[in-house]
Design a protein around this nucleic acid. Structure first.
Lengths: 203, 203, 203, 203
DNA sequence: TATGAATGAGCGTTCATTCAT
DNA sequence: CATGAATGAACGCTCATTCAT
């Protein structure tokens, strides 16, 4: 017993290592294709880029949502983890919220087509929706609650709604120089504030 | 030598009347299908619903954009015309802007998929984009200018950007009871205000 | 009795005049469209160019073949009539044949797509085939016979075959500067000669 | 460490073998449909005849030109290779040319619609044109050059032009018993000869 | 377990032809 | 008689998904 490697164990471990390597290749390829052609790029293209068969992609990621989640998991995690930190280091909870939302926007606007897919009512993206919501909603809610507790904002805006709104504002931002999602999101967050824009009522 | 209708004239007019009736049938059917399946529903479905051949649709509306524009023209016109009226009757330009935007939102959230198409960078929707922009942008700009002139908002937000933002916020609003586009748009407009939310700084 | 015009007669005659004018408008329009888009241009385009309804075209020319025949009738007639004249004025029957074929080629290569249609086995062009054959075949046959009688050529080449060959050689000549139908037809006719090419056996 | 097939290799090879068999089925079916309906037969028909989905055809032969080329490749190769052999075994270069052209004609007249497609200025047949030209033009040019060097013909006829002419003469030859493309091509080649038809000046 | 060949529904679009007005 | 609106078969093409190897 014990974990020590008999040959079968070694084989198993090496196979697992292989699989992981394989999966990473896959994710890199998918990320590259997503950048080039958007998150709805044909499965075939991703498989080709990764140098694997399409079946392999379906095996690892049964739905497109699974693949997208996997591709962006690290960044989503980082974003989620940034929330408490910002709350700790910002002057006010509202400022923390604004900064955190900015991170989210930065993430979304660089992911070709992701914002749109995030709003899609298409069945089959539930996994994707769930992941983003499960992971980011509590963070957003915490920031909102803190701001509400500080009296900076009312307590009547749901985190869910805010996140969807911000996500929506990011749609199509990549390709229109006359459209600045960050700016609009800034206005939205400012509008949340009880009194004024970010710099206060008395200027 | 009568004042008008010889038989040829009558024939011509009756043909046109028929065609117009048909076009209305078409628009009704399209509207219904748009509600059910979104504004990107297959041409075949619309034709079937209208009980006409597909060719008839292509005759009347060479591109999908033409069809969409025709289906929603009345409502867009009404929205456009409401702008000056609101400016005249509201307490402040900013309030007028808020109300006008509300009308626009009311329109968009009831049109399955329209908000999304409005943001699509797909070639072939230029007609659609143009129509909305040509018709509504000046109205929005007038309201913005008035609010800026009254010192209620800064002069640094383009009407184009605001309209796109509002349009984006309306995407997918129809089918998610937890998402209230009107509310978020309200926040966005509030964020535009120099000092405070809707109720004023000293509230 | 008599041909003299009572009012009914006048009406009839003027109607007929109208119809002829109408038909000429139609033919001019068709000719123009044939030049621009080939003899298989959509009926709609021709009707539009002529400023008439498509039904009018179908009334006057039930099949496309009828229309093509009508459009080119004058030129085909002229070509047909040139045969005997050339026979009378050329040094030899073979030279007359060569010149006549040249006229035919000149005609065909300037009619976008006509040569191709002339060979098409598509049902519905029988009228067209018949017209060309009925009108030109006898002329060609006469020239061939004369040349055979003069001993310049054998008597074993059918006029039908020759005409089809020449027609074929004209296909697609309009748009390929590296292809010279006249030249090849010249070789074909030269090949018909018992002894030599155009310049004689003793070179 | 055997000489070859581990199971992975065998799997790969067997897949390829399967695909190859499939491709042959496809080519057979395509050939049959081409005979029956011409080389412009609907993709669906070919797929149905082959008992495969349309996608399979597109996979193997992305464009129609690719399919046509594949179907006729063997015969085109054989034709191309016959050129030098004929040059070596015929009495004169001109005779070799005549025989080689005959082979080409034999090929074309049995391929319903191919001759026509070969002349089509339709974009999308470039691959096809290129293949035929790349493969056969040099052969034809060699024969022409040899005949010119032997003084049998002038040096003023381009191989390109000759091939197009011959191709044109083959259009529609299949279904018209009164039209003998071979014969006409024979005349064309005879016309190329400096002096006379095939049997000499003193015939 | 990986592969990628195969499937085929589905879509946009064209245009000859008919026929009610 | 003329009109042109309407029809709908037909076609090319794409791509998510399955499954034999």
């Amino acid at each position: 017993m014990g974990y020590s490697g008999d040959s079968a164990g070694r084989a198993a471990r090496s196979k697992r290592a292989d699989a992981r390597r394989n999966e990473e290749t896959l994710l890199d390829a998918a990320a590259a294709v997503f950048v080039a052609s958007g998150v709805e790029a044909p499965v075939r293209d991703i498989a080709a880029k990764a140098g694997v068969g399409m079946g392999t992609i379906y095996r690892h990621f049964p739905t497109r949502a699974d693949l997208i989640v996997a591709v962006y998991r690290h960044q989503v995690e980082a974003c989620a983890e940034a929330g408490p930190a910002l709350l700790a280091t910002s002057e006010t909870p509202h400022a923390a919220l604004a900064r955190w939302i900015d991170l989210f926007v930065d993430f979304l606007v660089t992911k070709h087509g992701l914002a749109a897919v995030l709003q899609s009512d298409n069945t089959g993206f539930e996994t994707l929706h769930s992941y983003f919501l499960d992971r980011l909603l509590p963070v957003c809610a915490e920031l909102l609650d803190a701001a509400a507790a500080a009296g900076e904002i009312g307590s009547d805006v749901e985190a869910y709604q805010l996140m969807r709104g911000v996500g929506n504002l990011c749609i199509g931002a990549e390709h229109d120089p006359r459209y600045d999602a960050r700016r609009l999101v800034g206005l939205l967050i400012a509008g949340l504030h009880r009194r004024t824009g970010p710099r206060g009522c008395d200027g």
